[in-house]
C-alpha cells in the first residue's frame, strides 16, 4: 500500500525534480566550448539576464505565445462543436465518432506533418486541385506561412481539445437545458447561460492541453512554417545545438517551464475552488 502511494512521488522525483535540478545547475553555469560537456559550473544569473536584455528572446516568446494562443482558439472553435455533436449523438454511435477523432494518433506524428507539407506545397495536392478545377489559376502557397503553422497545430492538437470537452459535455444533464428553455431561454441564451459556463472546466483543460505544448512546439513550425516564424522552441534548439551553449539553452528551458507552470497552477486553484463549492 505504501509502495503504491510512494510510486507517483518517486516518479516525480526521478523524472521531474532530478532532471530539473540538473538543468537548473547547468543554467547557472557558463558556456565552455572546449570541455565536454561544454559547461563550467558556477553560480551566476548571466544567462537569465541575457534572456531579458536581448530582445530576440522576448520576440520569440511573444511570437510563440501569439501562435499558440491563435491555434488554441482555433482548436476551441473547431473542437467545441465537434465535442458537442459527439456528446449529443446517439450513445451507440459515440465510440465510433470518438475513435474517428483519435484515429490520426495511430500514425506517426511526423508522417502526418509531412502529409500536410504534401497537401500545402506550391505543387501540392491542394493547389493542383485548385488549378485543375479552375477555381484559381495562380493560387498562393500556404506552406511556409504562419497560416500553415496554425493549421498544423490545430490539426495535431485538436483531439486534446475535443476529449476533455467531450467528457464534460457528455456528463451535462440535458434536463438543465430543458429547464432553461422552459424558463424562456432561447437556444442561444440557454447555451450561453447553461452549457457554456458548465463546460468551462473542459474549455480550460482543453486550452491548457493545447496551449502548453504549442508554445514549445518545434517540429510543426520547422516543417510547415516559413523561416520568419520565430518560436521559442527553435531558439532553444539553436542555443543547444548550433551555439552548443548548454547553459543558455537551460536558462531558456527553465523560463519556459516557469511561464507555463503559472497558468497550470491557476487552473488547479480554479479546480480546487470548484470542488470546494460542490462539496
Amino acid at each position: 500500500m505504501k509502495a503504491v502511494i510512494a510510486a507517483p512521488y518517486t516518479w516525480l522525483v526521478v523524472f521531474f525534480l532530478l532532471p530539473f535540478a540538473l538543468v537548473l545547475t547547468i543554467a547557472l553555469g557558463t558556456n565552455d566550448p572546449d570541455s565536454a560537456p561544454p559547461v563550467a559550473l558556477g553560480f551566476g544569473f548571466e544567462n537569465f539576464a541575457r534572456l531579458f536584455t536581448d530582445k530576440l528572446y522576448l520576440t520569440a516568446w511573444l511570437s510563440s505565445i501569439r501562435i499558440a494562443a491563435v491555434s488554441t482558439l482555433g482548436c476551441l472553435l473547431l473542437g467545441y462543436p465537434m465535442a458537442y455533436a459527439i456528446a449529443r449523438a446517439a450513445p451507440a454511435r459515440r465510440p465510433t465518432l470518438l475513435m474517428l477523432v483519435m484515429l490520426p494518433f495511430w500514425t506517426s506524428f511526423l508522417i502526418r506533418v509531412y502529409a500536410w507539407m504534401g497537401l500545402l506545397a506550391e505543387n501540392g495536392i491542394l493547389n493542383q486541385f485548385l488549378r485543375w478545377s479552375g477555381l484559381s489559376a495562380h493560387p498562393g502557397t500556404i506552406l511556409g506561412t504562419e497560416w500553415a503553422v496554425h493549421l498544423g497545430i490545430v490539426y495535431a492538437y485538436l483531439p486534446f481539445m475535443v476529449l476533455p470537452l467531450y467528457v464534460l459535455l457528455e456528463k451535462l444533464d440535458t434536463s438543465l437545458l430543458e429547464a432553461a428553455a422552459d424558463l424562456g431561454a432561447r437556444p442561444v441564451a440557454a447555451f450561453l447561460t447553461v452549457t457554456l459556463p458548465l463546460s468551462l472546466p473542459g474549455i480550460i483543460a482543453g486550452c491548457l492541453m493545447v496551449f502548453i505544448p504549442a508554445v514549445g512546439e518545434f517540429v510543426i513550425p520547422d516543417l510547415l512554417g516559413g523561416t520568419r516564424t520565430l518560436m521559442i522552441g527553435k531558439v532553444l534548439w539553436d542555443e543547444f545545438f548550433t551555439n552548443a551553449d548548454w547553459p543558455l539553452a537551460s536558462a531558456v528551458a527553465i523560463c519556459l517551464l516557469v511561464l507555463l507552470v503559472g497558468p497550470i497552477a491557476l487552473f488547479q486553484r480554479q479546480q480546487a475552488k470548484g470542488l470546494e463549492r460542490t462539496r
Partner: peptide
C-alpha cells in the same frame, strides 16, 4: 570563438526572421 559563434547565430536569426 564561442562569442563569435553566438554573434553569428544571433545575426542569422535576425536575418531569417527579420527581427
Amino acid at each position: 570563438t564561442a562569442a563569435e559563434t553566438r554573434e553569428r547565430t544571433r545575426l542569422w536569426t535576425t536575418i531569417k526572421t527579420g527581427q
